[in-house]
Design a protein around this nucleic acid. Structure first.
Lengths: 214, 214
DNA sequence: AAAATAATTTAGGCATACCTAAAAGAGGAG
DNA sequence: CTCCTCTTTTAGGTATGCCTAAATTATTTT
C-alpha cells in the first residue's frame, strides 16, 4: 500500500464507498486524474483486496478497505488535533500537514498520539475521529441554515475548506461557540446571529456549511 | 525532491559528502541498491543542483544539498525527541518512525516542533540537532574504549543501531549516566565500569560505540 | 608498462502511476 | 428499438527508479 493508493481509498470512502457503488468518474474528479488512470488503479486495488470492482458499474470498499480508510481518517484527524493544540497551528492550516503525516503513521504511532491527546472524539473542524475498529461517534446535528429565528444552539462542525475556514476565523466563529439566530432573510438571503455578544451576518451558503447541535 | 532522493542526500551527508568526494560504491552499499542505480540517480541530483558530480571520481554535496540534508537530519532528530519524550517510545524504537516522518516535515512544522520541544540540542542518542542554518553544536567527546582505569566521565552519545540500543537498555546505560572505569582487559578485552552503583561489563566493541565527555 | 582487478557507467528491461486517443459498453430520447 | 451521448476501458506512450549484464575507466599488481 502506497500513499497514492491510500488516497484512492480515502476518496472512495469520502464519496460513500462504504455502502454504495461509486462511479469511476467521481473518483477521477475527486483526485484530479483521468478516468483511465482510475480504471487501471482499481484493478490493482481489487487484486489487493481493498475494493470490490464491478467493471462499468463502479466500486465499493471491502471490509479491509473500509478498515484501511478509517485508519487514515483517524490518523489525519489525530494529527490535526495535535498541530492545533500543541504546535500553534490555526484551524485553516492543519489540514495540509495532516494530509502528509497520515500516510507515515503506524498503528503504534496513532495509538500513542491518541493517548497523548487524551483520546479526542473530534478533529478541530468537528468531524468525528473513528476509533481503531473504524466506528465513529455520531451526534445529532442540523445545518445552521435550517434553524429558525430565536433558535439557540452550539456550533459543532464546519466544512473543511481552507478559504471557508479563514472566513469563519475572521468572524471569530469556532467549534463550541454558542449563538442565537436573530434574523433570516428569505430566498436564501443572509442569516444574522448573535455570538459572544456580537452580531454576525452569514451568507446562506456559509450557513449550509456550519452544523450545530440538533 | 522525493523521499527517495532525500535518502540519497542523507546517505551522502553521512558518508562525509559535505567535504570529500564520495565513491559511488559507498552510496550503493549504504542504500542497498546497485551501483548502476546510483550513477543514474546522481545524474538527476546533479541536474537539480544538489550534488557536484565528477564521473568516475565521486560526488560531493553542493551548498543547497548540504542545507537539504541538514534539514532532514534536523527533522529526524526532532521527531525522535518528540516520540521519546511525549509518546512513550523507547530509545531503540524512535529511529524507524522518525525515518518516515522526516520526509513529510515542512520547515514550518520543524520550527513549531522545535519550539514545542524547547529547542533541544541533541537527539535521544546524543547526536547534535543541526540548527535551521545547518550548523551543529559540537562538544568534545572521546570513545569509552579510549578511557583509562579510574577515569570518570558521563555518557553523551551512542551509535544508533537497534540491537546495540537494546543491549545498552538492558544494562541501564543512558545518555547522561555518569560512571567510573574499574578495569580494562588488554587486547581489546572487556571493560568494567561502575554506573549507578552497579558493575557493568562491556565488550570492547560496545565501548567503541559509546562516547563520553572528553 | 602491461595485465589483472575493481569501480563505474551505459544499455536494455521491469514495475508503478500517470497521460491521451481510440474502442467498447450503458443508458436515455425519440 | 435504434441512435446518440456519456462513461468506462483498452491501447500505446511518458517519467521515475530500480534491476542485470556488458562495456568502459581507474587502480593496483606484477
Amino acid at each position: 500500500m502506497t500513499p497514492n493508493k491510500e488516497d484512492y481509498l480515502k476518496a472512495i470512502n469520502k464519496l460513500g464507498g462504504c455502502d454504495d457503488l461509486i462511479a469511476n468518474k467521481k473518483i477521477a474528479d475527486a483526485l484530479h486524474i483521468s478516468p483511465a488512470s482510475v480504471s487501471e488503479m482499481l484493478t490493482k486495488l481489487e487484486k489487493e483486496g481493498a475494493v470490490e470492482y464491478v467493471p462499468y458499474h463502479g466500486i465499493r470498499l471491502t471490509p479491509a478497505g473500509k478498515q484501511q480508510s478509517a485508519a487514515l481518517l483517524r490518523n489525519h484527524r489525530l494529527w490535526e488535533v495535535f498541530l492545533l493544540r500543541h504546535l500553534g497551528y490555526s484551524w485553516s492550516e492543519v489540514h495540509e500537514e495532516a494530509e502528509l503525516l497520515e500516510h507515515v503513521t503506524s498503528p503504534r504511532l496513532a495509538q500513542s498520539l491518541d493517548a497523548f491527546l487524551k483520546h479526542p472524539d473530534f478533529c478541530p473542524h468537528g468531524a468525528a475521529i473513528p476509533s481503531t475498529d473504524g466506528k465513529i461517534k455520531a451526534i445529532p446535528l442540523r445545518k445552521l441554515a435550517q434553524m429558525s429565528v430565536q433558535d439557540t444552539s452550539t456550533i459543532r462542525k464546519v466544512t473543511e475548506e481552507k478559504e471557508f475556514l479563514n472566513y469563519l476565523q475572521e468572524r471569530n466563529i469556532q467549534i463550541g461557540s454558542s449563538f442565537t439566530v436573530l434574523s433570516i432573510e428569505p430566498y436564501e438571503g443572509p442569516i444574522t446571529i448573535k455570538l459572544a455578544d456580537k452580531q454576525i451576518v452569514l451568507s446562506y451558503k456559509a450557513a449550509c456549511h456550519i452544523e450545530v447541535d440538533a
